[in-house]
Design a protein around this nucleic acid. Structure first.
Lengths: 193, 193
DNA sequence: CTCCCAGGCTAACAGTCATTAGCCCGCAGG
DNA sequence: CCTGCGGGCTAATGACTGTTAGCCTGGGAG
């Protein structure tokens, strides 16, 4: 049986994610991560390759998931306004649902060693270009009123990043409320309100 | 003569700010900072108290300046829409002009030791409440159409944070262009467009 | 019952840092 | 000329960290 494999490894990854988010990558020690899952630091090496590898897994996994969500969102319609609405919805929900991953993904790029950093950066650029394209198409079609496509898409992307910083699943604002409000914000922002 | 005091100390602070921004506080060594100003690590102690002190100066100085700019901006009028416009303008310009300070201020809170962290957090809360108040007043007066005052002010604040991440003084967008666009964004966002 | 090994542990290594101690040089004031 | 010292340097210290080596145990396979 090779089903439902390494719970242990997953636990470790989850603990690392939590600690990286709260204290940062460099300030988190292997001993800390071990303590969080009930073992000593060196024992972790029976399950993971290295501390850096833990970060790599988190960051590349995150970008892949985000890109996938984006592609799925824009593939469902060709109306520019609706495409942007769905992309923002996916963006916001991703940052709310995976706020730890998003948080670490945004803040620890500099802790990522070089073969991987470039790869993550490339995917992030691709994501950014995707949004810029959506805003551009909507403006082209006369559905948006924007002066700078670049500025507007930066603004929309930054809204999502912000969510990862303050959203709490057990807070007084539900994911739906946040998603609805923020898509509204984004559409108003590009003058499609 | 006690005029035009420590150029040396200022140079060191500037170099530290630059390095903290690019590599993060923990990843920056005293030797790095020293090299940036042309001396060895230990020599820095003839000018500054400690590495932590460097961070403290940067972060508290930043929050004070931001709060001062905010107060000055909202003191100049009592019209809710205009007050928000000016507050956002100050917010955006501050984050563009002092992007390094803003960047470090947002990202290195966790590296700040405890007497000071609390103090910075308190001032940040105060700043946040200021914006929330502006949005609330405008909504109360029927000039804004917002569902959640809190969400709208978070969104506006996050826009500024984003600027600190990508703005470059020598980029293709001038401070004025960014400021005008972003105040427009903020006003559209609260439905005052 | 025996054997194996997954998975934990401690000890040790090698490296990195912030910070301190103590030295020394050049120059400004007398 | 000398002397004090601002401000630089090297060496040393002490703490911490990621990672490796090697040991031990308990439970499942045969």
């Amino acid at each position: 049986m090779t089903v439902a494999a390494s719970t242990r490894t997953d636990d470790i990854r989850a603990a690392a994610l939590e600690l990286f988010t709260r204290n940062g990558y460099t300030a988190t020690t292997m001993a800390d991560i071990g303590a969080a899952v009930g073992m000593r630091g060196p024992s972790l090496y029976k399950h993971v390759a290295s501390k850096q590898d833990l970060l790599v897994q988190i960051m590349t996994g995150t970008m892949d998931a985000l890109l996938a969500a984006h592609r799925a969102a824009v593939a469902t319609t060709s109306d520019p306004v609706e495409r942007l609405r769905r992309a923002v919805d996916a963006h916001v929900r991703y940052h709310a649902r995976h706020r730890l991953e998003a948080f670490v993904g945004a803040r620890e790029l500099r802790s990522l060693a070089e073969p991987h950093r470039e790869a993550v950066l490339r995917r992030r650029d691709e994501y950014e270009r995707g949004f810029r394209g959506l805003v551009h198409d909507g403006a082209e079609a006369g559905r948006f009123r924007v002066q700078s496509v670049r500025l507007a898409s930066y603004a929309i992307l930054d809204l999502g990043m912000g969510i990862a910083a303050w959203y709490r699943a057990d807070g007084e604002l539900s994911e739906n409320e946040v998603a609805w409000q923020y898509t509204e914000f984004a559409l108003r922002l590009v003058g499609a309100g």
